[in-house]
């Protein structure tokens, strides 16, 4: 065992492989909890979409499909840079790692900015449920349900993106300070798992909300 892995190995583990597989399993279990966390909202969506499908169809037209598509593209690209970042850290390419983590963070921030503009647009269109809600359609009361679910789900997702962006910036600084080196690549690998998860959630949200009314 070389000295680099020696300092990385936590005292409760016998071997570095054991530690790595424990770290990975822990993150996967955490992601399972996240699936169940979002699951409550997906269940709500399923129930109400089956209860009043036409309202969901009509309400969905009020979301900007183009903006949603750009969101999707930005997040998919960020997953690519994240995957490269993990590789760069493993290979010990310090500046490349910082660059790729930074680009991932920029993509994440870009997603939040685009989404912020969408929220602003929906606010001015009176699509936020509550007293000022206005919707021209057959069933304006129930249309609020679509938008309530939309804001709650995308809001929770955006919160996850925000945490991810902060995480990427912290990781980039840690790489810069050489607190994270090739021997400690697991930290980045696990953060990567989280980032890909956030990305995958969006891949489900995009069709459920933006494309529900597509012809």
């Amino acid at each position: 065992m070389d000295s680099a892995t020696d300092t990385v190995l936590a005292e409760q583990f016998d071997e570095i492989e054991q530690q790595h597989s424990a770290d990975t399993l822990g993150m996967w279990i955490f992601l399972a909890t996240e699936v169940m966390f979002f699951g409550g909202l997906f269940a709500g969506y399923a129930v109400y979409r089956f209860s009043f499908p036409h309202v969901f169809y009509a309400a969905s037209h009020h979301l900007d499909v183009l903006a949603g598509a750009i969101d999707t593209a930005v997040l998919l690209c960020s997953s690519l840079t994240m995957a490269f970042a993990v590789r760069a850290v493993r290979l010990g390419q310090r500046w490349m790692s910082i660059l790729l983590l930074g680009v991932t963070a920029v993509f994440g921030a870009g997603f939040l900015v685009i989404h912020g503009f969408e929220y602003h647009h929906e606010w001015t269109e009176h699509l936020v449920p509550g007293g000022s809600f206005a919707f021209e359609g057959a069933d304006p009361h129930r249309a609020q349900m679509f938008f309530w679910l939309y804001f709650a789900t995308t809001g929770l997702h955006s919160l996850h993106v925000l945490i991810g962006v902060a995480l990427m910036l912290v990781l980039a600084v840690l790489v810069l300070l050489e607190k994270i080196t090739a021997a400690r690549f697991m930290t980045v690998e696990i953060a990567g798992l989280y980032w890909h998860f956030v990305d995958v959630v969006w891949v489900f949200l995009f069709p459920l909300y933006y494309l529900a009314g597509a012809r």
């Binding site: 279990i29 399972a32 909890t33 996240e34 169940m36 966390f37 979002f38 699951g39 409550g40 909202l41």
Partner: peptide
């Protein structure tokens, strides 16, 4: 692990 997040949401 699988039930508590549902309570949370």
């Amino acid at each position: 692990v699988l039930a508590t997040p549902v309570l949370a949401i």
